[in-house]
Structures are given as structure tokens and as C-alpha cells.
């Protein structure tokens, strides 16, 4: 996920990453990860680098363009669960297509290229 700042409010962080900052840590779905040492500053922002470090999420940066990308959580494997997370992709017309709209049907998600 792309970020234009490494100082985000908890709400901006939630919108960007899906992780909500609560007293017990960063929470998403039924998981909470403790965040010792990561606190909301007086100006209401959180240090994204400190958050990412605690979460095992790498940060890549491009100083020239003032852009950063927060990578996925490093871990034993890409999938932490067999349950599909939210996937919304653009269709041929550029409209957002939510794969969850296909619940109740089998889905073969095939990545393909024409070259």
C-alpha cells in the first residue's frame, strides 16, 4: 500500500492498512498485535516506521517523489489462513469488482498474460 507520509493518524492508518489501533495493539478481524513503544503522539499521529517494524511489515521509500510503500507482513507463508481476504480488482471497464460478490459459486482465479 502506498503512503505519502510516514506520520499518519490512527484513522489514516486504518484506512490504508486495515489495522485499527486499540489499547491492546493493532487489531484486524479477530487478531490483535501488541505494539509496545508505538504510541499516538501529541499531534495525533503515529510513526509508521515504528508501527511497520513491530508488525513485520517492510517499508520501501522513494525520497525523490516523497512516496513510501508498506509491504505485506513477513512470515512463514503468504497465506496465514485459507479464508480469502478482501479482493477488489478493476474490471475491463475500470469498475471495481469485488471477488466476494461471487460467494456461493466456485471461483478459479487465474492470472494470465497474452504475450
Amino acid at each position: 500500500m502506498l503512503l505519502e507520509s510516514l506520520d499518519l493518524t490512527p484513522e489514516e492508518l486504518r484506512r490504508s492498512t486495515g489495522w485499527e489501533i486499540k489499547p491492546e495493539g493493532a487489531c484486524k478481524d479477530d487478531r490483535c498485535v501488541p505494539l509496545p513503544g508505538v504510541e499516538t503522539r501529541a499531534d495525533g499521529t503515529i510513526d509508521v516506521r515504528a508501527f511497520a517494524d513491530r508488525m513485520g511489515m517492510p517499508v520501501a521509500g522513494d525520497e525523490t517523489h516523497g512516496l513510501w510503500a508498506l509491504g505485506p507482513q513477513a512470515g512463514a507463508s503468504v497465506l496465514q489462513s485459507a479464508q480469502v481476504s478482501e479482493i477488489v480488482l478493476p474490471d475491463f471497464a475500470g469498475n471495481a469488482f469485488d471477488v466476494a460478490s461471487l460467494r456461493g459459486r466456485k471461483v478459479l482465479l487465474l492470472a494470465w498474460a497474452s504475450w
Binding site: L79, A82, Q83, V84, V99, A100, L102, R103, G104, R105, K106, V107, L108, L109, L110, A111
Partner: peptide
Amino acid sequence: GVWIDESGTI
């Protein structure tokens, strides 16, 4: 390819 069943389970 990835297979996803009717309940959203891979």
C-alpha cells in the same frame, strides 16, 4: 491459478 470454494475458502 487459485481455487476458492463457495464459502470463500481457498
